[in-house]
Design a protein around this nucleic acid. Structure first.
Length: 287
DNA sequence: CACCAGGGTACCT
DNA sequence: AGGTACCATGGT
């Protein structure tokens, strides 16, 4: 394929806006009808027109596999949702979030993002990540007029930061967690590439070895960066969804709820989780 | 100005 | 094992 800075991709059952804004990735900005973001240090502008996604980059591309992979264009969504449990809450969630997709992010960026996510609202997480990139990321060409953007900072760069450097990005008590994670990756103590070949429980255990990474954050990384679709992150919203939709009048114990979450949703439980998350959030528009 | 946010940890019964 | 204060910071 000849290098070009534009491409278009036919899609079915794809809601680009919902997928980019559903709290799984934090570097996408809506500008009118288009979405601008940076994937693996490459600036890209996306626009959905019906059953077509159009892409434009600042730098000509020899191929677009990186974007197809990020957007998971080859996933048959109907085949995924067909594995969801056939109950009223799932039917309502799928109906309300048609075309919602899981993206496939870079592990390091995803890990840092979710370490920074604890007890933060999505807008604040976006702000922290933006600051982190502006201060410590490599400058890149962005936009169609040669504007400047920033790649997500490497582990080596963040390992070289002081805790105060990181705190200046407003991440608060999470700063030492990010620093320690960066050092673990740089030293080779944690090999993020190897996790692709691990079972979900083994990869989860490896991630949870990091300070500040518990079950929830580990499962977010497993789901959003490694595509391990049996990972099922339970945050306050999903807990709320499970409690209100499946246990409307008795308050389930934490143990009961955990067991339910781990057994009820099938092989694509993580995908189902994203539908529940987005569904309950759209029910309460507190933005 | 309280209250809460895509939690985790340490410390307490 | 199961609950709870605390962590830092900003939005609503």
């Amino acid at each position: 394929m000849k290098p070009a800075n534009q491409a278009s991709f036919p899609v079915r059952d794809y809601d680009l806006a919902a997928s980019l804004a559903s709290g799984q990735a934090f570097r996408w900005r809506q500008v009118g009808e288009v979405w601008e973001g940076i994937i693996a240090g490459c600036w890209v502008r996306l626009r959905q027109a019906g059953e077509l996604i159009e892409a434009e980059t600042a730098v000509p591309q020899a191929d677009w596999l990186w974007l197809r992979n990020f957007l998971q264009l080859d996933v048959d969504l109907a085949a995924v949702t067909a594995t969801f449990p056939d109950d009223e809450p799932m039917r309502a969630s799928v109906a309300a979030c048609r075309g919602l997709r899981l993206l496939r992010q870079e592990p390091w960026e995803c890990l840092v993002s979710f370490i920074c996510s604890s007890t933060k609202q999505i807008v604040q997480i976006q702000q922290i990540i933006a600051l982190l990139c502006e201060r410590f990321g490599e400058p890149i060409t962005a936009g169609d007029k040669g504007e400047c953007g920033f790649a997500f900072p490497s582990a080596a760069r963040l390992a070289a930061c002081t805790e105060a450097d990181l705190r200046s990005c407003k991440m608060g008590f999470r700063a030492p967690y990010v620093r320690a994670a960066a050092e673990a990756v740089v030293s080779g103590e944690l090999d993020l590439t190897k996790l692709h070949g691990f079972s979900t429980p083994a990869a989860r255990a490896a991630l949870m070895g990091l300070h500040g990474v518990g079950r929830k954050i580990a499962d977010c990384v497993l789901l959003f960066a490694y595509g391990k679709q049996d990972a099922f992150p339970v945050d306050v919203w999903v807990r709320r969804a499970l409690t209100e939709l499946y246990f409307p009048r008795r308050r389930p114990s934490a143990k009961r709820l955990e067991h339910f979450a781990n057994t009820h949703f099938g092989p694509n439980a993580g995908y189902a989780q994203q539908y529940l998350f987005h569904y309950v959030r759209t029910l309460r528009p507190k933005e």
